[in-house]
Design a binder for these strands. Sequence first.
DNA 1: AAACTTTTTTATAATCATTACAAAAATTTC
DNA 2: GAAATTTTTGTAATGATTATAAAAAAGTTT
Lengths: 135, 135
Amino acid sequence: MTRAEERLAEKGLSITQPRVAILNYLMEHHTHPIVETIYNDLKPELPGMSLTTVYNTVKLFNKVGLIQMLTIDEHQICVDENTCPHGHLLCEKCGKVVDVPIQGMSKKKIIDGNLIHEIHQYYKGICKDCLNSSK
Amino acid sequence: MTRAEERLAEKGLSITQPRVAILNYLMEHHTHPIVETIYNDLKPELPGMSLTTVYNTVKLFNKVGLIQMLTIDEHQICVDENTCPHGHLLCEKCGKVVDVPIQGMSKKKIIDGNLIHEIHQYYKGICKDCLNSSK
DNA sequence: AAACTTTTTTATAATCATTACAAAAATTTC
DNA sequence: GAAATTTTTGTAATGATTATAAAAAAGTTT
């Protein structure tokens, strides 16, 4: 059993080709891909897989907590396999989403009377790489 | 000159009927409306105004810093006239976006080598009102 | 303030990410 | 391994947002 298969099993999900391929892809690519990128990149490996399946699978993985869906980019949803608390920066220059160490975010379950399930810390700005390359 | 007109002038924007109406609406409704809600609610007052104008105006206001556009809801953009730092919670039950006091977010301009322009702190969970009403 | 220039708005059509749906395929159960 | 269930596919639909060009409004000049 591969690591991806183990992780699917842990969540009580049945192990299918698309699920294993998508989870493997996400475990290997920490680039916060959009659904279409996952679909295109997996095409050579799984030519028969449909875009709908990637959407469904990503949603399923999100629901069971295998991944996070990021709404940092108003135009499309990005997928992040790293579910440990960390922030994200959307670079206004290159458009990439990069990880940022989380800044003093509380782990409270109740804030101001509201029950908290999920936390997202988003930044917009210029990423390290773009700053350096423009010097 | 009304307060809304003053604020437009401060940003160097010309004062037009739609801009005044939209800004006034946002100053009076801290409900994080989506564009279509703004459009529908202003229809009686400005029957001729088009949806496109609301989209354009909101984008313009966002660019000059009069408002914030929130991407907390993956399905649509919410508009927030309060540009002071605060977080937002999307209630999984009633779907409303409510203000949440910001949790120890740094005001750093540089984080981990990246230049920060904008900060968004989003939560998903159950809002105070829904928690209380289900008791 | 009429004439001209620039900016803003309108109305419509286009785009494009995401979802709905029903049939086909794969997987699980018995 | 056949029946039941779940998953996937393929296509079409949805719906938020944007593009575009013409019309209207606002700002400028004389």
